[in-house]
Design a protein around this nucleic acid. Sequence first.
DNA 1: TCGACGATCATCT
DNA 2: GATGATCGTCGAG
Length: 217
Amino acid sequence: MPVGPDSAMSTQPRALRPLTARFYRRDPRNVARGLLGRYLVRESKGRKLVLRIVETEAYLGEGDRASHAWRGRPTRRTATLFRAGGCAYVYLIYGIHHMLNAVAGQQGVGGAVLIRGGEPIAGVATMRRLRALSASASDSAIASGPGKICQALAIDRSSDGVDLMDGPLRICGGYPVPGSRVWVGPRVGVDYAGEAAAWPLRFAVLGNPNVSRPLPA
DNA sequence: TCGACGATCATCT
DNA sequence: GATGATCGTCGAG
């Protein structure tokens, strides 16, 4: 078994190589910013589906009222959120939609990044079918929202806690987005969160049609 | 054990 | 712009 720089993994193109623990175990703000342009890869039933991440939100953990971890202690639902960065945190909202997060930061912190928007790269026909889209719907309707992403990639709570660095659901290098193309502003749907609602923790690729909601001026 | 509510979306008007 | 769908989770009692 080869090790080091010549290992089998490194023979893949960088864009298709999974991001490593070093990437995830940083401040969730840096992880959220750094995930833009990366490839979210889903392998299921022999299908390979790929989305390019174009919108994210950071959730900081304890003290961030919008975070499921704001109280600082894990519950049955949020246990995976307190693990070390690099695994998926998936939960159900409104009884209907699943949300996909990448756990970020060190173990016990409760940091995470919500994946909010994706640009279809591969497996488009399968994703359209999973989304039950009509033929007239544009490709930007496939994954322009966190609930849509999970539907398009067949992600549910059974993916909660899975390793994003190795396995059928992973995030790969892709092509990072330069700072001049990144929009930063307040998060969506967290008006209840007090002062945290205004924190600039939403990141998006400027001008990309796969963003979940228009970017405020 | 109960009640309130939500990191959304599609479908109306 | 407004509304209904739909249910797991969590804190209060």
